[in-house]
Write a protein that binds this DNA or RNA. Structure first.
Lengths: 244, 244
DNA sequence: ATGGCTTGTTGTGAACATTACAATAAGTAT
DNA sequence: ATACTTATTGTAATGTTCACAACAAGCCAT
């Protein structure tokens, strides 16, 4: 793990945090869960947004910390938490605004914070209960995300990339974003959003039909002003049994 | 990044290190670069091995720290350093042996060390210069790796997995392990070792031949007691131009 | 120089997966 | 009844993957 370094540079004693990129899908767009931040700069109050995150406790594993943060801020008990990258660049806190906010928040002098970033895919319609009181949370469509705190824009962009690659390797991954009963249109739209290109309607349907772990239900959607689409569900047990 | 936590748990102030999984290929087996460690337990001297790694300095980026550690320990200036996971489990230092060694090495009380793990693929025949003096380094075939320090066996196993997946996504990745001039047999053996299954000779050759960034040379291998195989080289510029 | 040994090099057909493409069915609203 | 909207379905062409074996080239021993 480490060597008796020949150098006499000072060792860093850093804070470690976790940040979560929580993604949801509303049937039309992929949205990311952000937290409103209220800060102060030169006596001016400012509002912006950041990813949900927090410092880890002594005696707490990284994954547990991510789970706790998510639960505290949103009530989400996420099952598919994926650690994807550590961010430790010195200039991730180059913005004075961020440093002021941070030092007031944790009431400590901050040298640097290394953050471990996680991705969680959730069903967007689940109820969110913000047990930490103060912070307002909201689902923002990916294409409407403005400048975020710290390097959170970079983290978010990296996360999308990881989701894309992970979904390719694991065909079950994106189902975490869909409601339990969904139409093929919803599934197709999701794939189009994630991969950024249109999917052929017939070929897509054909492909889904030959996945035995996507099972057709005897139900159709309700309250639409046209022919109602059949509902499907994802069968995780069947998926694990088949594994391709 | 963080929230004013409602909890009153103590915040952790942790050490942060980087560990490098350096992989090479000798034409037959994939090898990992390990460092011999000499420690003491109950007055008994013990010898074992660990991944190259070290604590990060204040003011040092994670990637820079990994690069520095690698350079100090091996002389390698690795260009393809890939950060792949952070390890922060409390019980990664559950072995008393490790804790003793660690606290003597850095002359500090150690609560926990979060380590950021990197992968570097290098040409195994490059000269290694261990500028840190003391520690002996060696290339160990993957299937001969014994129990390592800390959780380094886990890190190594994870790394192999990441290499496999990364190689699928980026066909240029594994060429970092080959000498500049190589035979198709070497390339094929490498793929067989990484993916753990035999590759059909003809199909493999055919596939390589239709990659225009693997260019045939007018040279053949020397000093073999049979028909000499043609040499090839990987053309990175062509690869970047094509990108499939 | 010959024959034997070892490894290098090459092609074809079958099975399978991917792509492109448009007409009809089912339900709602007027 | 008609218009409107979205759902659902098949086929042919193309490209990719896979399985499989005979001949070529160079070295060595005699």
């Amino acid at each position: 793990m480490l060597s008796q370094s020949s150098s006499q540079m000072p060792l860093a004693v850093n804070h470690i945090s976790v940040d979560c990129v929580v993604l949801g899908f509303d049937g039309e767009k992929v949205r990311v869960l952000l937290i409103k931040r209220v800060g102060e700069e030169n006596g001016q109050v400012f509002h912006d947004m950041k990813l949900p995150g927090g410092l880890i406790f002594t005696d707490e594993n990284l994954d547990d910390a991510a789970r706790r943060v998510l639960r505290e801020l949103t009530g989400i008990k996420s099952i598919n938490l994926l650690q994807f990258k550590a961010y430790g660049s010195k200039d991730r806190t180059k913005n004075a605004k961020d440093v002021h906010w941070l030092e007031r928040a944790i009431q400590m002098k901050v040298d640097r914070i290394v953050t471990i970033a996680y991705i969680a895919l959730v069903r967007i319609n689940r109820g969110l209960t913000n047990s930490s009181g103060e912070n307002e949370i909201c689902w923002v469509p990916l294409d409407e995300v403005k400048t975020l705190a710290f390097d959170h824009n970079i983290i978010l962009a990296d996360a999308i990339d990881v989701v894309r690659r992970h979904a390719e390797a694991d065909p079950s991954y994106l189902f975490n974003l869909l409601p339990q009963k969904f139409t093929i249109l919803q599934l197709r739209t999701l794939y189009e959003r994630v991969y950024g290109k249109p999917q052929d309607v017939r070929n897509f349907q054909k492909k889904v039909n030959q996945l035995d772990y996507v099972v057709a239900l005897d139900e159709h959607e309700q309250g639409v002003a046209h022919r109602a689409a059949r509902l499907y569900r994802f069968d995780r047990k069947l998926f694990k049994r088949v594994r391709r």
